[in-house]
Amino acid sequence: MLWASGVEFPFYPPPGLLILAGGAAFVGLVKRAWAPGVGAFLGLFVIAGFVLSSVVSGAGIGYLTGDAGAGGVIGTVTQLAGVAVALVAGSIAVGRERRAGR
């Protein structure tokens, strides 16, 4: 959404798109008990990147306050909600697999 809203990225395609698409493909295709942990890690990675970009340059918070327009706000909120769900769901899935002894 940020890219579609006109936010400039250092290269094409935007890195978050590649990272999250690759992680989703991995979690969906690999049949290992720990695979959901990759989704949880990527969720944590994106949240940490958002916090870091907010602290260093103010960009993360700027996207939430409308610096990139309405599309940037919608995209940022959607992405943060999605990666938060991935973090929680992936952590729960790995924990259940560990308790089940698989």
Rank of each mutant, 00 (worst) to 15 (best):
V7H: 12
F11R: 15
Y12N: 14
P15V: 12
G16S: 09
L18I: 15
L18S: 12
I19C: 06
L20Y: 03
A21G: 09
G22S: 10
A24M: 10
A24S: 12
A24R: 02
A25G: 10
F26G: 00
V27G: 07
V27S: 08
G28V: 08
V30S: 10
V30Q: 07
R32K: 15
W34D: 13
W34I: 15
W34N: 09
A35N: 05
A35W: 01
A35T: 13
V38K: 07
F41V: 14
L42M: 15
G43Q: 08
G43V: 07
G43M: 02
L44G: 15
F45V: 14
V46M: 13
I47W: 00
A48G: 13
F50G: 03
V51Q: 06
V51D: 04
V56G: 08
G58N: 09
A59S: 02
G60Q: 01
I61H: 10
L64N: 02
T65W: 03
T65S: 15
T65G: 09
D67G: 05
A68R: 02
A68F: 04
G69R: 09
A70W: 13
A70V: 13
V73H: 02
G75S: 10
T76V: 04
T78E: 11
T78G: 14
L80W: 09
L80K: 06
L80A: 11
A81T: 01
V83P: 00
L87S: 08
L87R: 02
V88C: 04
V88M: 07
A89Q: 09
G90N: 12
S91C: 04
S91A: 15
S91I: 01
A93D: 10
A93V: 01
A93R: 11
V94T: 06
G95W: 00
E97N: 15
